[in-house]
Design a protein around this nucleic acid. Structure first.
Lengths: 132, 132
DNA sequence: ACAAATCATCTAATTATTTAGATGATGTTA
DNA sequence: TAACATCATCTAAATAATTAGATGATTTGT
């Protein structure tokens, strides 16, 4: 009875990817420091490097030897990852309906008038592209 | 060294919640049948009821005794669950920026002109509400 | 040169999540 | 009534995810 893994990054993995999206390449030491400082996750050095190596084996990050340490970088773009998570949410909960999710977000999110205006523009642009 | 659980439903739990959102209350027998038919997850009866009871303990579902079986219903609304997952994604990846995620979705989603028109209306309504 | 710091590797442990068979109780059908 | 079907409970096991200390190697600082 196998427990299936997930195709998406786990919560800790997502935290680490975010750190690397913000700045990379980074050595483990720095990833560990930022996990503690930015994500309130104080982990031992070996906990962090273990997770990073698992992520490397999963194809989420690249690593490059630098002296005796490794520098890690994200291999997946932010959009690809969020697209995957959200796409999954779509197919599971919204029967694949993107617009239902987008509407749900717009209804629940706290958007100010500038953000709404920007969205309006984007939608107008999308609609225009569709007519061509 | 505890391994933290997640505050969100796991992938299987989300599949089960979807089934219950579509129709509830449901007995375990029916949940199991739909997992197999709709989610291509053929699990043993006891696997399903174990997961449902874990979900009950987590506060995700309600259950009511009916004869010798239990009927399960969702306790959380779809919006609350997706809002939680997406809110988490926001805070981890988009620094809390709802509009960035919504824009990301609009750009990547395959929306037809009717859907775009509906979004435009919703945004207009939101903008109007904000002026009051 | 020696001590301390840094680093990866190895090994181990905990917990969550998943999966399921055996068992006993209950209900239904022949 | 007996056999069968259905159901929850109990027990067990596999795997993923997480966490971390011990160890040896390398680098840095005194």
């Amino acid at each position: 009875m196998a427990r299936p893994g997930s195709e998406h990054p786990t919560e800790l993995e997502l935290e680490i990817l975010k750190i690397l999206w913000d700045e990379s390449p980074l050595p483990v030491r720095d990833v560990r420091a930022r996990l503690e400082a930015q994500a309130a996750r104080p982990l031992a050095h070996s906990s962090v490097i273990t997770t990073l190596n698992i992520m490397f084996n999963k194809g989420f990050v690249k690593r490059k030897k630098d002296g005796k340490s490794f520098l890690f970088s994200p291999k997946l773009q932010k959009k690809a990852v969020t697209g995957g998570i959200v796409g999954d949410l779509l197919s599971r909960v919204f029967d694949g309906s993107s617009s239902a999710l987008v509407m749900n977000l717009i209804e629940t999110a706290d958007l100010d008038s500038e953000e709404l205006a920007a969205l309006r523009k984007l939608i107008a642009r999308k609609a225009k592209e569709q007519q061509q």
